[in-house]
Nucleic acid binder design. Sequence first.
DNA 1: AATGAATGAGAATTCATTCAT
DNA 2: GATGAATGAATTCTCATTCAT
Lengths: 190, 190, 190, 190
Amino acid sequence: MRLKDDNKKDAIFEATIQLINEVGYENVSMSKIGRKAGVSPSTIYVYFENKEDMLKKVYLESKMKFAWGMIRGIRNEDSVRQVAFQLVKNVLDYVQENESYFLFTEQFADSPLMRDLDMSEINKIFGPIYEIVERSQKEGILKQLPPELLFAFGYYPVTQFAKGKLRLDVSFSQMDIESLQQMFWDAIKV
Amino acid sequence: MRLKDDNKKDAIFEATIQLINEVGYENVSMSKIGRKAGVSPSTIYVYFENKEDMLKKVYLESKMKFAWGMIRGIRNEDSVRQVAFQLVKNVLDYVQENESYFLFTEQFADSPLMRDLDMSEINKIFGPIYEIVERSQKEGILKQLPPELLFAFGYYPVTQFAKGKLRLDVSFSQMDIESLQQMFWDAIKV
Amino acid sequence: MRLKDDNKKDAIFEATIQLINEVGYENVSMSKIGRKAGVSPSTIYVYFENKEDMLKKVYLESKMKFAWGMIRGIRNEDSVRQVAFQLVKNVLDYVQENESYFLFTEQFADSPLMRDLDMSEINKIFGPIYEIVERSQKEGILKQLPPELLFAFGYYPVTQFAKGKLRLDVSFSQMDIESLQQMFWDAIKV
Amino acid sequence: MRLKDDNKKDAIFEATIQLINEVGYENVSMSKIGRKAGVSPSTIYVYFENKEDMLKKVYLESKMKFAWGMIRGIRNEDSVRQVAFQLVKNVLDYVQENESYFLFTEQFADSPLMRDLDMSEINKIFGPIYEIVERSQKEGILKQLPPELLFAFGYYPVTQFAKGKLRLDVSFSQMDIESLQQMFWDAIKV
DNA sequence: AATGAATGAGAATTCATTCAT
DNA sequence: GATGAATGAATTCTCATTCAT
């Protein structure tokens, strides 16, 4: 009996992400993924129930990776201003270092396929940040608004800006980073 | 010889948008679109070169509609603060009044299909706004940053927030609107 | 616009029956049927919903043909003995003249696929026979048993006997026919 | 080295029959059979050459079982009338007590898969019956016809009748049994 | 212009069988 | 002997597009 080979699963993950970024979801077939991953298309069905199951799992893993990237280096005792600046920096770093993972998730963000996924595991990762926000709101440093609204200004403009740069194949300047950090901070601080 | 019938073209546009929102892009076929539009699938090829051509045209038209919605009621003589507030309001109004058009464009925003589209016609619509921004930067009211960066804070957080609400099928409160307006303004003003 | 071509439908019917007799149900694929019928496999889907739908329709049509063959030449004023003899003769004639249709239906008689088919249309064809049976039972000529039980002795031994002969590729002698008729009659008469 | 395990072989037999009755031949795969039998699909290949070989062996074994069931309790010194009545009774009893075996064989009776099987072993079981028939024909009790023709009236109407009852999930009444016995007897006796 | 029939190409998936342990 | 992983070959079915009218 052969043992299940984790390399194969990883190769399928990687091939899926690369291919979808290269040719778009609508042009990705199981046999193309298999070919790129170096396995038979039917082997994919040893590791996943079907195409949808596979895509969802790749998506969740990518999101999880992103979440860990976002909170990297943030400590509970940091000032909320520091945290805000760090978040923006982390997002930009992650996007740049994990371009293909990032673009893959963006392409599925609005797909009906990814509705109703259980994101609770991922959201838990942001627990510490929520605590800092709450504390800072009590201290009167942050606007008294739902945290989601505050996050929105640190996440969406940053990722969309980054996406534009990736498409043009240019990297971010130090000034870009500082501008985004400052604007985020101005948006959420009292 | 009958003339090409604009009603039919419109029916095809509308059917495409509705269908894609209902069942997702991957489940939309030319014959389903034809059926919903009340025409034969082959009739679609009288009006469009092929499926891709059609989707691109529907996408561009939707984006155009959105652009007009965004600058609605904005006049050159308005203060930039007024303009900023109006933009946020316009986005939210448009999204709410044109849900299916909006969701359709969002679903394709990151699709490789829509890469390399000529958006210059659409960008022209924002000409007056660019002028106001430039003027305000000279007057020292707005941060001295690329306009795209400024816009990013008035567009992405707002649309993503709106999308979340649409998914939950709830509308925006007056406080939601004011919060988004104020945060946008705080982010871009000096 | 091309018109639907009844020849194509017939060709598909015929090809299905021939193929299933030649290689068995488990080895018949839509593409083999298409090839034999001289059409593309996808053309079959213009005429039928799917494989199951097609098989059911071919089955029902074959059964209908058989039913008409069974009552051929039987008139209400015939004596029940005459009718019984005629039925046996008709079955044998039909089987011999429509070997492929007959063998096709036999192969599906016990298939789960053909459960729950609406046979009412077909059963109606036997209405006149039922009347004769009823009449004869009142007259004390036939055994007082459910008609299905009576029919069973005129149908199953005859078809199964015929099937055996077909397999050996021999035809029925006059004596075979007369024996089956007499045995049927002895079984059901009082 | 372990020995081939008859329990496993039996489990595979049983699983095959149950599964085919439950979901139909077209939906039965080697791995489903393995799962139901509690063995790996590849284990089946230890006991059988391939799927076809396995099905044929299961079929032959089932037929053998049926044959033994049919001659149960019949002794050479019984009168032929007794024998005829007993045969009908035996068939009905067997069908009722071994529903899944019986339905399994019926489903394959006309399948090309089961053509060209060597049934001589099974036919030998009926030797004693043939002797009784021959004797009775000499004594002028039975019609002077090929035994197969005589058997046909004791076997096919009975099994088909029984199958109809099984489908409706009802059992046979004493009157059903007696009717079938009497009709069989009337059909074959002089 | 309009259309329903027709189809080649390709999709996801299944499966009997073999492989490696 | 026993097994789960692996796969080539095949299956059903869909679909964008073209054809013939």
